[in-house]
C-alpha cells in the first residue's frame, strides 16, 4: 500500500505541468475510479480542504490522501513522491539550462503541456463544480468567490474564511444540510 501511494503521487508529480490545480482531474480519476480509495463526494471535500488551507496545494493533497490511507507514514511517502520529480527536473535544468532552453523540440513539448494543463484545469472546474454546487445558494457562492478572487483580486484567505464562517453559522442554524 505504501508503495502504491508513493507511485500514484510520483506519477502525478512527473506528469503535471501547471501545478496542483491541473492535478485535480488526474488525482480524482486515480482515487475514485482506479483505486476506489474515496468516493467522488469525499474527493471534493478533500480538494476543498487542500485549497482552503495555506501551502502548496499538491503537497496538501498528497499529505491528506496519504494520511487518510496510511497515517503519518502514508503522508510522508505521498509528499515525497509528488515533490521528487520537481526536484529532479529543476536540478537538471539548473545545471544544463542552456542546452534545454534552446531546443525547439523541448520548448514545443513544454508549450503543448502547458496548453494541456489549462485543459485539465477546465475539467476540474467542471468536476468539482458539479459536486460542490448543490443549489442556488452554493451556485451564487461559487460565482461570488470567483468574482472576488479573479476580478477584484481579494486575498484567497479572506474569501475562504468569510465563506467558512457563513457556512458554520448557517449550518448551526439549519442543522447541517449539504447546501449552504
Amino acid at each position: 500500500m505504501l508503495l502504491e501511494i508513493f507511485l500514484v503521487f510520483l506519477k502525478l508529480g512527473a506528469f503535471t505541468i501547471g501545478g496542483g490545480v491541473a492535478m485535480i482531474p488526474i488525482l480524482q480519476k486515480a482515487m475514485v475510479e482506479d483505486k476506489k480509495w474515496f468516493t467522488e463526494d469525499e474527493m471534493v471535500d478533500i480538494i476543498a480542504i487542500c485549497q482552503g488551507l495555506p501551502g502548496v496545494i499538491a503537497v496538501n493533497m498528497a499529505t491528506y490522501v496519504g494520511f487518510r490511507k496510511r497515517g503519518f507514514l502514508g503522508s510522508l511517502v505521498a509528499t515525497f513522491g509528488v515533490i521528487l520529480p520537481s526536484f529532479a527536473a529543476i536540478l537538471l535544468i539548473a545545471n544544463f539550462l542552456t542546452a534545454i532552453g534552446s531546443s525547439p523540440v523541448i520548448l514545443g513539448i513544454m508549450a503543448a503541456l502547458r496548453a494541456a494543463a489549462a485543459g485539465l484545469v477546465a475539467v476540474s472546474v467542471w468536476q468539482v463544480g458539479r459536486k460542490a454546487v448543490k443549489g442556488p445558494m452554493s451556485a451564487a457562492a461559487a460565482l461570488a468567490s470567483f468574482v472576488l478572487i479573479a476580478v477584484f483580486d481579494v486575498n484567497v484567505a479572506v474569501v475562504v474564511l468569510a465563506f467558512l464562517v457563513i457556512g458554520v453559522v448557517i449550518g448551526l442554524k439549519k442543522g447541517g444540510s449539504d447546501d449552504i
Binding site: A132, G167, I170
Partner: peptide, 13 residues
C-alpha cells in the same frame, strides 16, 4: 456547515 461554505469557494478558486 464549514464544508458547505468552503466547497463553492473551491470552484471559484
Amino acid at each position: 456547515g464549514a464544508f458547505a461554505g468552503v466547497r463553492p469557494v473551491t470552484v471559484g478558486m
